[in-house]
């Protein structure tokens, strides 16, 4: 058909105009290309009319006129739109700060606590709590630390009246849970604890999280697998987890658990004192004396327990330099963690 070039020109024009958008310079470029007086495409198509055979001329001429009208109208509209946009741009400054609703920020320790809780909730653990003011039995006695036990020295205790004290660890909640809950027990126990100690790495009030699993046939291998899964989800699946024999009065056998340094991935750096390892958890099989203290039969049931400092995990995860910053209530610090998923 003779009008084929016209149809092609129409499509090219519409495409070019769409692409030019509201940019005045690009709209002008489209105008010159298609409707330019000297060398525009319309001019060329007009010239082509002369060379056509007579019988083709009327059809071609009509289609050419329709194309001209379309080009004029669409160009005019595009020029107007480009002009309006220009004016609008002068009025609206999109770089002005927005009238933003204030967003809240959870404390870094709350963030890591929830992250840890979620990991264990998904594995079927419940989250337990207990009193912060405790008695001697739940904080020490039932945990195989009778009066005058040397291990009490390492847990400098704040005492209140009448033999009460501020709990030095979240372990009394283990005792309270074993005293009252049906087996099997799977618990995660976060909470606030207190020790008479204050320096760069110690705060008299801090936070722990402990885990407790008690039931029939619980093994040391179960403990290892659980802590490996935990560390890999919380930090990084590439981290190695190392169990070293250790001693706690309430577990037997006991272990200190190290992970590959999260900062240098084992190469050695300032955070891990060049060792490539970071000590992060204490763990072990629940001591039979503790099970007996809770009226459970160590011949029938066994269990494992582990614990770590929540504040320390927050320090590691968010690279905070000083534990005491966590208790400063400084909004400049607290609001740095607004964007952390919770």
């Amino acid at each position: 058909m003779a009008t084929e070039p016209l149809e092609r020109a129409r499509q090219e024009f519409l495409a070019a105009l769409t692409e030019a958008g509201c940019d005045p310079a690009r709209v002008e470029a489209v105008r010159v290309r298609f409707a330019g007086r000297r060398s525009g495409l319309l001019r060329e198509l007009e010239d082509a009319l002369k060379a056509l055979p007579r019988e083709a001329k009327p059809g071609y001429g009509k289609a050419l006129n329709e194309l001209k009208t379309l080009v004029e109208e669409r160009l005019a509209a595009a020029q107007r739109a480009a002009e309006d946009a220009g004016i609008q741009r002068q009025v609206l400054d999109v770089t002005l700060p927005g009238r933003r609703p204030v967003t809240g920020a959870l404390h870094p320790v709350t963030l890591v606590r929830r992250e840890i809780e979620e990991i264990f909730l998904r594995m079927g653990y419940s989250v337990a709590d207990g009193p912060e003011v405790e008695d001697d039995w739940h904080n020490f006695g039932a945990l195989n630390m009778p009066p005058d036990h040397p291990a009490r020295d390492t847990q400098d205790t704040f005492f209140l009246k009448d033999g009460l004290l501020l709990r030095t660890h979240t372990s009394p909640v283990q005792i309270r849970s074993m005293e009252t809950m049906p087996l099997p027990i799977r618990l995660i126990i976060p909470g606030r604890v207190y020790r008479r100690d204050s320096d760069l790495r110690h705060s008299p009030m801090f936070h722990q999280v402990e885990g407790l699993v008690v039931g029939e046939g619980i093994t040391f291998g179960n403990l290892k697998a659980t802590l490996e899964a935990f560390v890999h989800v919380l930090f990084d699946p590439r981290l190695a987890v190392r169990f070293r024999p250790s001693f706690f009065p309430f577990t037997e056998p006991s272990a200190e658990v190290d992970i590959t340094c999260v900062l240098c991935l084992g190469a050695g750096c300032g955070m891990c004192s060049g060792s490539g390892w970071i000590e992060i958890l204490g763990a072990g099989m629940v001591d039979p004396r503790v099970l007996s203290a809770c009226k459970l039969d160590p011949e029938r049931v066994s269990g494992f327990a582990f614990g770590c400092g929540l504040d320390r995990v927050a320090l590691l995860k968010y690279r905070l330099p000083d534990l005491r910053l966590l208790f400063s209530g400084d909004e400049r610090l607290l609001r740095q963690f607004e964007g952390v998923a919770r």
Binding site: L121, F220, N222, E252, A255
Partner: peptide, 28 residues
């Protein structure tokens, strides 16, 4: 413990505990 620490904690295979599936909850 005496035997296990000389057997080597690292030589114990890791096996997740199995127990009846029960949803966890926040308590207290």
């Amino acid at each position: 413990e005496e035997v296990l620490r000389h057997f080597g904690y690292e030589n114990v295979p890791s096996v997740l505990p199995s127990a009846a599936m029960k949803p966890g909850a926040r308590l207290g």
